[in-house]
Design a protein around this nucleic acid. Structure first.
Lengths: 228, 228
DNA sequence: CGGTTCTTTGAGGACCATCAATACGCGTGG
DNA sequence: CCACGCGTATTGATGGTCCTCAAAGAACCG
């Protein structure tokens, strides 16, 4: 019955290849929690007692300093966080809050570390996941340092376009103020930025975005496979 | 005699715990190369055929897009790069160039991946290194997104202060234009920024920086253990 | 010592943040 | 069903930060 409850995460890359024994150890001390929207689940600086996995819903990782706040990334189903803190047994560097009602699996960090040492397949999966997240962060950094806010916005829209099956009508998955923070700009500036992109074939109506001239937008945003 | 040549890296965290057999495999196909200063060793987009380790000297990781360039980090002796690309067998996301005459060990990525699968101690060391780099990048990101350029500069000086044994006379380890790029600003702005920090107890003479009022600088920069 | 590169300083302008006010959207309760 | 209240989104005005361009000074190197 325990395996039953955790069936969903069993299929994710991080756990797909682990042995049944390992999975049993990992889930033995684990539990599942349902969070309401807008709930701060973890706070930066706290010890990383659990590895978290978003089973469904939506979780934002963000950070704060000196009264300011910035959104780092948004996680959806079957995403893990924050693996590095768990592995190194160090405090979280980011806080996490739910954006929607979310179901989250929590595995005690100790169990993760001990199975990591005992099961080579799990170790490989961990390294894979870590590398993936690391590289995603580097891409994010390049995006921030090499592009203007308008270019970041344009490429973000193109990324949504690709993710949502190359449709020209795109739905923003998060609130604009959070998107603004993620892109390193203010909500006001995002609003103006979306208007500026009209000159490059982008039309906006609320959460809907319409790409009227994909070629123009692409020419402006210059997406790059080493960033996006 | 092969172990002889690679004695220096044997003591670094990544290799300290691996078995002699594993180390022999890792170094069998490896070689050491001496690079002159200002030499581009690897270019982003290329396949990651080797794991690189800076044995001595100084290497800058940077990235480019649309004619712009940005410095990501600077590596000194016994630093590895770029591990994640090696593990995932993906193209480099960053380029690397020497800033000084440097001696670099290059281990074929295939050997790294095969020893990684066979030697659990090496796997642990890899995960440790990956986590460390990942967390460093997150800190970097927080620094960029949560602070103004002047605050970043102030905290950078404080970091040097700590690293150089809490002396009040600090030596900049890299050129100012590269520091500017690392901090996400232009050389002109860095120059002006250093002047602005006079108001917070910082005096500059060329590559030398003198902290005249540590308390004032600290009060201004507000260093944070979750960022710096 | 001459040439190159880096650094600094100044002027101007682009970009972006802040503040303020209005409009919009949405859920709640009357 | 509508009115209300709350949070979000937009728009305008303003100012600050930061980049660009240009030129002069300083450091480095052959």
């Amino acid at each position: 019955m325990v395996p039953q409850r955790f069936e969903i995460i069993r299929g994710t890359p991080l756990f797909a290849d682990v042995s049944d024994e390992s999975f049993e150890i990992l889930t033995r001390g684990a539990y599942i929690q349902n969070f309401p929207p807008n709930m701060e689940m973890i706070t930066e600086g706290e010890p990383a007692d659990f590895l978290h996995i978003v089973e469904n819903g939506c979780v934002e990782l963000f950070c704060q300093w000196s009264g300011r706040e910035s959104s780092i990334t948004t996680l959806y189903h079957n995403s893990t966080f924050i693996l590095a803190a768990t592995i190194k047994n160090r405090p979280y560097l980011m806080s996490a809050r739910t954006l929607q009602k979310s179901r989250v699996v929590m595995i005690p960090s100790e169990d993760v570390r001990s199975v990591f040492g005992a099961d080579p397949d799990f170790a490989i999966a961990i390294v894979d996941e870590l590398s993936r997240c690391y590289r995603a962060t580097i891409r994010n950094m390049k995006n921030l340092k090499l592009r203007t806010s308008l270019e970041r916005l344009g490429n973000y829209i193109l990324k949504l376009h690709r993710r949502q099956g190359n449709t020209l009508t795109i739905e923003l998955p998060i609130e604009k103020r959070r998107l603004a923070s993620y892109l390193g700009m203010t909500p006001e500036n995002l609003s103006r930025g979306l208007n500026s992109l009209k000159a490059h074939g982008v039309e906006v109506q609320g959460q809907q975005i319409l790409i009227e001239d994909l070629e123009a937008l692409t020419k402006f945003a210059k997406p790059d496979y080493l960033i996006d």
